[in-house]
Design a protein around this nucleic acid. Structure first.
Lengths: 226, 226
DNA sequence: GCAGGTCGGTGCGTTAACGAACAGACGTCG
DNA sequence: CGACGTCTGTTCGTTAACGCACCGACCTGC
């Protein structure tokens, strides 16, 4: 169950479900592109969604991850005509999908929804700031560890599928950069992987190997949304 | 005049002015710290404000700049109890200051204000994403050029005061990194500086020396707020 | 059983930025 | 005038990451 929705009074939540529909998101599905209108907002349950910013050429960078603690489509809530990021499904699973117009209409009459969405936007802004700094100051190995922890949290599982190639895309580095960092983590028996199947062996160790940004993020959620 | 306010119907704008007061912000004044409550929101007129994220230790990074095209205090609008960034005055000048509580009360009864603030938040999120990528992929010289252009726009002047030390703080690099980049720009006769007094000599040239992020930002403002 | 694709690993030279330390130039104030 | 603080410039060795190119291991399907 999506936690933003879980925080709503039952009545409000039910009305919201009635306005939308539960859909299954599939891995790599694209939910939005920069410059295009956002048709639906999504509240992930088991699924989770990457927000990726294109930088011209082939450079890309993931700037945020939305799982059951959040949502995709804040631009709709903010009344913006178009998305400014790519949104792509990172982990398959269900999500509540609501049409942009219906969602805005609902926001207008549902203060508890507005309140929760606004708080999420605030947290999101904090994450973006944190991630910007993380990308600037921390080495690939730390960032990789952080990314795996974040993914694991949202996948609700300690194993998941992702290739070095894909990770490179997310972190904005070369594939070999990922290979090198991943090898080091594997040598420390923190993770294991083979042909895209990653599993976390030692969560506490991985947290130590990651930068403090991971913990900062958790705190931020707990403080504002918990 | 602040452009977010300028976009409001005259009546709404006047009420807002009546709720707050015009204050003079002075260079280096701190308007907010991470983890502390935000007491007032600010709508800069000639002044402008840096949002800076602390990264543990002495590492810091500016993540956004708010001049008369925007505001400081979106976290208040989002109902968050505390700030997640440092806010410090980058350019002296006047701003409309409004108490957090009064501002929230006003948002509740003033749809055109809400609409404009929300759109600004959307643009801000876009900027944060852009800046994150910029910090990741672009060299110091390009980022420095971009920063000077952004500052110049918000200062409404082609000369302003800032030392290499301060710039290093903003861009999250060493002071000598700024010195090196600044020398190169000066050698190309794009800028001139001496003991903290910077002037832009060749704006078009500087735009060419900067990364495309500058233009992307301008487009983003024009599209959503223009 | 082998062809072709995907995935991970290695090695090469190059580069932007780093930390540290020091030197000169300029301004201001006593 | 001279002392001190601020600002800018330079040097030196180090490092994380880069682009490129190639290899081998594994998997699937014909």
């Amino acid at each position: 169950m999506n936690r933003l929705l879980a925080a709503l009074p039952a009545k409000d939540r039910e009305r919201l479900y009635a306005r939308g529909e539960v859909v299954d998101l599939v891995f790599t599905q694209v939910l939005a592109n920069p410059g295009e209108a956002v048709r639906h907002v999504y509240f992930p349950a088991e699924s989770f969604i990457s927000l990726v910013t294109p930088m011209g050429g082939k450079a890309t960078l993931e700037i945020a991850l939305a799982g059951n603690e959040g949502m995709f489509g804040v631009s709709v809530a903010l009344g913006a005509p178009e998305s400014n990021v790519h949104a792509l499904v990172q982990g398959a699973g269900s999500a509540l999908r609501i049409g942009a117009v219906a969602f805005r209409r609902e926001l207008a009459v549902n203060p508890s929804l507005t309140r929760n969405v606004n708080r999420y936007i605030h947290v999101l802004i904090g994450q973006l700031a944190q991630t910007a700094g993380c990308n600037r100051f921390h080495v690939v190995e730390q960032r990789l560890a952080r990314w795996m922890l974040m993914t694991s949290d949202r996948a609700h599982s300690s194993t998941f599928h992702l290739t070095h190639e894909f990770l490179a895309f997310m972190l904005g580095v070369r594939r070999v950069g990922i290979t090198k960092a991943a090898r080091t983590l594997q040598a420390q028996k923190l993770i294991a992987y083979s042909r895209g199947e990653v599993s976390i062996l030692d969560r506490a160790g991985l947290e130590r190997a990651s930068c403090s940004c991971y913990q900062t993020d958790l705190d931020s959620y707990a403080r504002t949304l918990g």
